[in-house]
Every structure is written in C-alpha cells, then in structure tokens.
Design a protein around this nucleic acid. Structure first.
Length: 649
RNA sequence: GCCGGCAUAGCUCAGCGGUAGAGCAACUGAUUCGUAAUCAGUAGGUCCACAGUUCGAUUCUGUGUGCCGGCACCA
C-alpha cells in the first residue's frame, strides 16, 4: 500500500492505490484547489494518475514553472478543438508549447488569417468555460491508427505509425474532443485560464521538412495570469521599439533598397558607427598578435572546386563572367582559401606558427530571399575574420587566448554574458571520419583547457570542421550567435598548405577559422537593438549637440562646438529658431547622447548646461571641463588609461 | 525557396471603379523663448511595375519585384 512522501519530508500512508486528487484532498482543501498536476518520483504526470507504490510526490500549482508549460500545451489543445468546431474538415497535426506560448499546425485547404482570430479566441474561451476534464486513455497502437484514420486525421495516424513500438499510445479527451498526446495535462480546460492570445499565422512544413506539405500554423501566447500576459505584450512592444530597421531609419544610419537587395547603404552616421567598431577591432587584433591582410573579391572558380566549396556551397555563391574570358569567377563567400594562398607563398617554418592572419573580409553569399532581415542577415557583409595556422598542440592554447580576447571584446561592447555551443560533423562534409574524430577531439580538449562549458549542437558544424558558437545575450534577454571558432583539418591539405617542422619534414598545418563579431552588419544591428539606439558615448556616431536658447548665444555655441570638435568629439550646433523644448525633443528622439544647452547665462559665464539622453537632469559646468570630461568618456575602452596605476620600474 | 500579409507624399497612415487626403517632417514668414512639439502659410504624388477586364483602374484580376511575419536555410 502506497506511502507518499511529501516535499516537507512527511509521509502519508494509503490503503489502496490513490490518485493525486485524492492525496491532495487528504492534505487539505487549499491544496486540493491549487494542485494542477504532480511529480511522482520526479516525473510530471496528471493529477488523476494512479499511484500504486511508495513514491515521493510534489504537487504542481499555478505558480510553478511546470504549470506554465502545461497551460500552454493545454491551450494548444483548446485551440485545436476550437478550430475543429469552427472549421470542420480541418486536420490536426501537432501543437506543442514553446517559449512564451504555443502553436498548432493545421492541414486545411485555405490557410487561416488573423481575421479568424477573434472567432477562434471566443470559441477557445467558451471551451475553457466548459471546464471539461482532460481524460487520459491508453489505446492499442493499431486500434489508435485505425481510430484516427476513421476520423480522417491522416497526419495523426502517420504520427502514431512513426512512434517507436515501445511507446504507449495515449489519447486525451476533453469533452467531445480527442487528441493523440503524450501528456500530461491540467485537470480541466478551465485551468488554462484566460491569459492567452492568438498572435500570428504562418506557413510551416509538415515535420519541418521543406519537401513536405505546407501546413497552416497558428501561434498563441499563454500565461498564468493577465499581468504576465500584459508584461509579455509589453516586452514585444519593447522589442519592436528597438528594431534596428526602425532605429536605423530614425537615426539615419543606413538604408537598403531594391537595386541591391541584401546589401547595406551606410549613411554618414551609420558609417561613423561602423568605423568606430572597425577601428576598435583592428587595435584589439593588432595587440593580440594578428597580422591583417586584404584579399581579392573575385577568384577563379577552380579554387573553389579544390577547397570543396563548389561541391558543398555552390548554391549560395555568386558568379561573374566577362565576354572575352572563358574563366568563371566566383565572388568569395568566405576568406579562408585566400588566406591559405597567402600562407602558401614561400616556405613556412614551424617557427612562424601560430600564424594569425586577419581580414575584414567582404563576402557575398546568395542567402534565400526569405532569410534576409534588415542588416542582420544580408547577402553582402564584412566578417571580422581570421585564420590561425598552427600545429595540433597549439589548438588548445590558441583556443584559450581566443576565448579571452572574445570575452574582453564582448564586455567592451556592453555584453556581459555569453554561452557556447559545440557543433559537430554535419551530413554534408569533406574529410574522412578519422579526421573528424581528430578535429572534434581536439576541439573538446581545447574547451576543457580553456575552461569553457558548452552545450552540444549536433550536426551543425561547418563542412570542413567542427565549431564552437559563441552566443551572446542582449539587454532584453534575446540570444544572438556572433563568434565562432572552427577547427579545420581539411582545407589546408586540400589547398596544399604546408610548413617545415622541427624535424625538417613537411607538415600540414591545422587551420582555426575564427570570428568574434561575426559580421559587422549583423553585430551593429545587434548593438543598435541592445542599446535601443542609445549608444555609450564612445560608440555614438554623433556625440554632442550644442543647442541655443536665444540667438545672442549663437557665437558662443559655435565656439563650444569648435572646442568639442578639437577634442575629437563629433559635435554640431543647433542654432535654429525654435524653442529649447523643441530642440531637446528633436535631439532626444534622434538619440543624441549629450545636449549642451547654451543661453545668455552660459555665454556670459563660459559654461554649458549638459543634459544626458534618458535623464532630465541638467548640470552646469565650465565648457573646458565638459570637453575634458566627455572626451575622456568617449575614449574607446581599449584606449582608456586606468587612473591611479603606476608602471613599476 | 515555401505559406500568408502588405506596397498611396520624406515618415506614419486614411481612402476610393470617375486619376488623391490627414498628421508629422520640409520650405517661407512671424516669434528670441531656460530643457521632450510656438503660430501662420506654402509646396510636395508615375497611388511599386507590367499585362488584362472596363467607356474609365490608384481601386478589380493575373504576373513580376520588394518588404513584413513565420517555415526552410544560415557552410
């Protein structure tokens, strides 16, 4: 007879197998009301699950994280029921809970549109109101297939067909409606609550494969209560407010147009930002022992055949031809082969290794039209690329040095945390399995040496080698993959790179492909969104606007601008015939970090009234002090001299 | 590339089978003002492109292009 151990350590004895409902009721009416599901020996199950043997039980209530996932999953079921009530003939497929909500994929001749939402949502609320219990039932496999085929649900039948034989087939019924589902579920549809909202429709391939039928996916968001839902909707607005395409337009940083799809026209202010980032990166790479190079855009396609790109990457490459030359040229999608060609000039010695070759390399890739996204995903971009030619035993120390450099650079750009994924051999690849074993082993070992914790990203490596992906988190919690470190035992050999070792024999170097920002375009897009356009002073393309209150201060304002500019601060005067309120508003909306207001008083006293973006406070300081202080603040982080340190003799 | 939506003034958007409107921005004038919109006036359009239907198309239909949201892709 089951003895139930509760989280507080107490034990309850029962005479016969019991359900969670019974146990909760035995503990108290409060818990009986609050318990939505339970964990039996750590496994999440329905409250109606029967416990026959001794077990530890933890009840899940609305405030537990597990509850949220159940709410979302159940909301998906409610959505599916609502859709099938409203649109008979629609087939159901799958409907999982996801981050922030749920979706359900439907097979239907006419895809859903957002206009259908209000009817579906009303029906969903009606179903929630019915408080139909979720009832679990286990069915024989063939019977279940037959059951769904009878109902005309061929996708469901297919799902069961493909489940492993060992898997029990469970169905859940809510009222009249039945779905194939592993579970678990809440008690009744009422537990879903009312804090849900349908968000968007989208096409999605059956089983995520583009060769399959396109289904109509309905996305929803669901939360424990209205407050959480509101917070989420607010968060979405916040993300939209930060959209780099919006801010790029508002601040006049860049534009993209039809004549150059997927390529960026950088405007003066945007290019200033770009150059600030590039100059910074160049200094960091110089200091870290990299040698910068520059290589051609167009190269004979034969090179790409040898490198393996022709075979594995041709569909994503641009090609160029001219009338009186039979050669086909490829626009480089990567810089690596070019760097190998430089490496191959002359005889290399082991003494030159590790040889770190860097290039801000302009690459072109024919990305699918649907993948393009502002400046984040483009067809023409510049990588902060470098290749480290080294011996096998230099992989680990180079990885350690790289991770240190990358962390420091991310920190300087305002990103405090990142995580790492290790992507191993993909299906489409070059090189033997033995070489891949070696490369993957070397990379894992390097991670251990560098003290890097990583999660596995199976099958996602480059075609020439496994890679580490460095994913950073922005100010509103979104993740972006930027940095990468790839171990390549293939390309150097394919392109005949070699060096003379200590033993006098010729060896093939290992090549580490690495990038920190990834591409400038993407990284700057991320920076824009991370800061919502409110850049720290060193990055801000326009640092100071001197705004006058009266025209009597014009002369002084010009002098002030000159003083800021002399200190290297991009500054301009706003002498326009507008009220100071309007000027403050205009420049605040343009994300200018510092507004220096000058009126009669300031002109007389040689001061400026500083107002920082995002604050209403003003500080009146002598012009010279303002210049010195802002110039110090605008110094890039790598050039700042920390005060108070003395250099030891 | 696939599914769906969208394309009208510099921007945000309204509108309609009889060839176009608002707010903001711009420009002109007045106003000299103390920290997120001073007032008045003026100008501004191949209604994405091409084809079709129609007496007549910015509007309806088709095709193309681009953008947006997903999916697939991201070596």
């Amino acid at each position: 007879m089951p003895a139930i151990t509760l989280p507080d350590g107490s034990v309850r004895q029962f005479d016969a197998p019991v359900t969670g409902t019974t146990v909760a009721a035995a503990i108290g009416p409060g818990l009986a009301r609050a318990a939505l599901a339970m964990k039996v020996d750590g496994k999440l199950v329905d409250l109606a699950w029967e416990i026959a043997a001794d077990a530890s039980v933890v009840f899940v209530t609305r405030k537990d994280p597990e509850a949220l996932e159940l709410i979302r999953h159940d909301a998906a079921h409610v959505l599916a029921e609502a859709v099938q009530e409203l649109f008979p003939g629609t087939q159901v497929t799958i409907g999982p809970s996801i981050e922030n909500g749920f979706y359900y994929d439907f097979a239907r001749d006419v895809p859903f549109t957002p206009e259908d939402f209000s009817a579906i949502e009303s029906k969903m609320r009606e179903i929630v109101g019915r408080a139909s219990p979720f009832v679990r039932q286990v069915m024989d496999r063939d019977e279940a297939i037959h059951f769904f085929q009878e109902k005309g649900e061929k996708y469901k039948a297919q799902l069961i067909q493909d489940l492993p034989r060992s898997e029990p087939i469970s169905l859940y019924t809510q009222g009249e409606w039945v779905d194939l589902c592993r579970g678990p579920h809440l008690r009744t549809t009422a537990d879903v609550g009312s804090a849900f909202k349908l968000m968007k429709v989208a096409g999605a391939y059956w089983r995520g494969d583009h060769r399959n039928a396109m289904l109509s996916r309905v996305y929803g968001t669901a939360w424990r209560d209205q407050k959480e839902l509101d917070a989420h909707l607010h968060q979405l607005e916040e993300a939209e407010r930060r959209d780099h395409r919006r801010i790029g337009k508002d601040m006049g940083l860049f534009h993209i147009q039809e004549e150059a799809v997927g390529s960026v026209f950088w405007h003066p202010k945007g290019w200033k930002l770009y150059r600030t980032a590039e100059d910074y990166m160049r200094r960091r790479l110089d200091a870290a022992g990299y040698q910068e190079v520059r290589t051609p855009q167009l190269l004979d396609h034969d090179l790409w055949v040898r490198s393996g790109h022709w075979e594995n990457y041709r569909d994503n490459m641009f090609f160029a031809e001219v009338a009186d030359d039979k050669k086909t040229l490829a626009v480089k999608p990567m810089n690596c082969p070019c760097h190998v060609l430089i490496f191959r000039q002359g005889l290399r010695s082991y003494r030159e290794l590790p040889l770190r070759m860097a290039e801000f390399g302009a690459c072109h890739r024919y990305e699918p039209s649907g993948a393009l996204h502002g400046i984040m995903r483009v067809r023409s971009f510049v990588q902060d690329d470098a290749h480290i030619f080294c011996s096998e035993d230099q992989i680990a120390p180079e990885t350690v040095a790289f991770v240190a450099l990358l962390s420091s650079i991310y920190r300087d750009f305002g990103f405090e945390s990142f995580h790492v994924k290790l992507a191993d051999r993909p299906e489409k690849r070059v090189g033997s399995d033995a070489v891949w074993d070696q490369a993957e082993g070397a990379l894992r070992e390097a991670c251990a040496t560098a003290g890097v914790d990583y999660t596995l990203n199976p099958g996602e490596g480059a075609f020439y080698g496994p890679k580490l992906e460095f994913v950073l988190r922005d100010a509103i919690g979104r993740d972006w993959q930027c940095g990468t470190l790839q171990v390549d035992f293939n390309t150097p050999g394919r392109l005949d790179a070699e060096y003379v070792g200590e033993d006098g024999a010729r060896h093939t170097p290992v090549m580490l492909h690495r990038a920190i920002l990834g591409s400038f375009e993407r990284f700057l897009g991320i920076l824009i969104e991370n800061y919502a356009g409110r850049f720290p002073l060193w990055l801000a393309p326009e640092k100071v606007v001197v705004a006058t209150i009266v025209s009597d201060a014009d002369e002084y304002a010009r002098d002030a601008v000159a003083a800021f500019q002399a200190a290297g601060l991009t500054a301009k005067a706003d002498l326009s015939n507008q009220k100071i309120n309007a000027k403050v508003r205009e420049h605040s909306l343009a994300h200018v970090p510092v507004i220096a207001v000058v009126g009669r008083k300031e002109a007389e006293n040689g001061t400026v009234a500083l107002r920082r973006l995002g604050s209403q406070a003003q500080e009146i300081v002598p012009l010279a002090e303002a210049v010195a202080r802002l110039a110090r603040e605008a110094t890039p982080p790598d050039l700042r001299v920390s005060t108070g340190t003395t250099i030891a003799a």
